[in-house]
């Protein structure tokens, strides 16, 4: 039971790192990232391949994975210069899918759906088998703490104010002399780096990675963590990540009580549950999601509908 708890906490840690990175990108800067799975995969495969195929030491491979996430994030953020936020979101989704497709199809390198086996582990041989999972949990927790401190520092620093200005209105920020693009690229790259780190930690923890883990669904789990916790609020999203993981894990046990559901159906049911919860939370938490500053009057240009909404104009 302790072993299970430790492993669950470790997985929650991966979620927390991803959620903190997303909060940096979206909650604070307003840049939508649906390609979280892509950065996660990039980190996992970079570190995994470097150790398993080229024999690099973990201590070198993991930082390289972080760097890969940083560079990929920076490059993608360059596109935000010319794109509306929702179209930028589509591009990030595309990045995620392309990463997954490469992992799936370049199977001579990545082993494709067979899965890449990774033997290397950080601190291998330094602790006995009983203790190692706890050591790994501490490692993951330290990265969570590091991500938390970095994101929180950025939030409180003058940079944070600039980021919020960009989120509210990038034209105004530009006029004020803030270099919007540079800030965006920096923030997105830092977010990408942490996502890469989460991927590398995941890879060396499970020691067997395959493309189906990195479906766009991952993005939904992380988005849900951030939304549940409250966008822009770093403490909230840690709790959010815990709640999402609890739902994911908790629903596993439904199968123990209802035997008509096989594993396939059960996993489908979990996704339905998560998706429905996300919709309900978004619906109930009016205004909790995006700080929509644009005023809208009844039947505004934005929504284009009046008839249904006369009372709350």
């Amino acid at each position: 039971m302790t072993a299970y708890l430790v492993s669950m906490l470790t997985f929650t840690g991966f979620f927390m790192i991803l959620a903190l990175a997303l909060n940096l990108q979206w909650g604070m800067t307003g840049m939508v990232n649906f390609g979280i799975a892509g950065f996660y995969a990039l980190g996992a495969y970079t570190s995994g391949l470097l150790t398993a195929k080229l024999g690099w030491p973990v201590g070198l491979a993991m930082p390289t994975a972080v760097a890969a996430g940083f560079v990929a994030g920076g490059l993608i953020a360059l596109l935000s210069l010319r794109l509306r936020e929702d179209f930028f979101a589509i591009v990030t989704l595309g990045f995620g899918e392309i990463m997954r497709l490469i992992a799936l199809n370049e199977d001579e390198i990545t082993e494709g759906p067979r899965g890449l086996k990774i033997d290397a582990r950080p601190f291998a041989g330094m602790f006995d088998r009983e203790l190692y999972p706890i050591v790994y949990l501490i490692l993951v927790a330290s990265v969570v703490a590091l991500a938390f401190i970095v994101v929180e520092c950025i939030r409180r620093a003058p940079l944070g104010r600039t980021l919020r200005a960009i989120r509210e209105d990038d034209v105004v920020a530009e006029v004020l002399g803030k270099n919007v693009l540079l800030h965006r690229v920096t923030v997105f790259a830092i977010g990408g780096a942490f996502m890469g780190a989460a991927g590398a930690l995941y890879a060396h923890y499970v020691q067997n990675i395959s493309p189906e883990v990195f479906m766009p669904m991952v993005a939904i789990f992380i988005w849900m963590s951030v939304i549940v916790g409250g966008a822009g609020n770093n403490w909230g999203l840690l709790i959010g990540a815990g709640i999402v993981m609890t739902i994911l894990e908790g629903t596993r046990f439904i199968g123990d009580f209802v035997d008509i559901l096989d594993a396939e159906k059960l996993s489908a049911l979990r996704i339905i549950l998560i998706g429905t919860l996300l919709i309900i939370i978004l619906r109930v938490k009016q205004g909790g999601l995006l700080p929509e500053q644009r005023f809208t009057y009844k039947g505004s240009q934005e929504s284009g509908r009046t008839e249904t909404q006369t009372s709350n104009a």
Binding site: F34, D86, T276, L282
Partner: peptide
């Protein structure tokens, strides 16, 4: 009227459901 990003998130959740 909740902004395109919220609706985008909703639509992705809906497609998964």
């Amino acid at each position: 009227g909740r902004g395109p990003v919220t609706l985008l998130v909703l639509s992705i959740a809906l497609t998964l459901i």
